[in-house]
Amino acid sequence: MSPELVIEKCMRCGACSGACPVNAIFLEEHSPKVSDECTECGLCVKVCPVGAFRPGGA
């Protein structure tokens, strides 16, 4: 499963979007959106400066 964003923690900084190796995260107006192209590599989970992603929606 793709990582799940905890919206309350997200600071909309774009770190996940820039780090995503397959360009699957697009920073929309209010929050990052993870698209179907996500390969579940987990980089966004680790790169987030505030830990706003939960891996695999767990």
């Binding site: 774009g14 770190a15 979007s17 820039g18 780090a19 190796p21 397959v22 360009n23 697009f26 790169v47």
Partner: peptide, 19 residues
């Protein structure tokens, strides 16, 4: 468009930054 540049990717100019 900065660190998270979409434009550079859309244009096929670059690939992912090594972690």
């Amino acid at each position: 468009d900065g660190f998270e540049s979409q434009v550079g990717r859309w244009a096929g100019i670059y690939t992912a930054i090594p972690p």
